[in-house]
Amino acid sequence: MKIALFITCLADTVYPSVGRATVAVLERLGHEVVFPAGQTCCGQMHVNTGYQRQAVPLIRQHVEVFEPYDLIVAPSGSCVGSVRHQHGQVARRAGDEGLATAAETVAARTYELSELLVDVLGVDDVGAVFPHRVTYHPTCHSLRLLRVGDKPLRLLRNVAGIDLVELPEADQCCGFGGTFALKNAETSAAMLADKMSNVLATGASVCTAGDASCLMHIGGGLSRLATSTRAVHLAEILASTDGTVEVRS
């Protein structure tokens, strides 16, 4: 199938390895990945910080770029959540019914990676090898906005060699929340501290999730604690065939 990659601004700029991994998994499964070059950002940060009017041109840009494609994937529960649950509403609030309708059409064809693999492509074993102790953090927006349920776990369970351990209080937010981490930094850090205790209690060497943003938060905290536990995106584990993930340069 021909699949358009919606990379997300964060993965594009800060975590290109997550994008490369997403491409690798889909191509290994025999699909054609295209990268519509006009894409920028879904506007979630603007919407969630209160700048809905400013987000409208971003939504328009996103809709125009992705409208020609029948199947769109993003390695992010949060950005797909914004496309599905915010784009139409923000456009409508701005009085642009045409954009709202078009946005809803694009949203209906947009999937988070685990949804695409399990629901659309019908795959729960992507042929990955990753012999490490891994714990999975279900990000709030995959869990509660998209309801991805156990799809990421089904994919992870089929990874060869993986030692998948359950994360205590897994459904608790890591405290990222976009600009929340800056505006209410101390509350955010208190939430992060509890998330990290739970991650470390598993003895896992890798904490994975479907969102680079939450992983930037958890990983940033783990790095500050100077632990050897790393944050690795779900796509990177699924892309791995030799037990390693790309080392950041």
């Binding site: 800060v14 930094a185 992060l192 930037m216 790095s223 950041r248 340069s249």
Partner: peptide
């Protein structure tokens, strides 16, 4: 204050 930030990629 509580978290590191990744170095931007090349």
């Amino acid at each position: 204050a509580a978290r590191d930030l990744p170095r931007p990629p090349t």
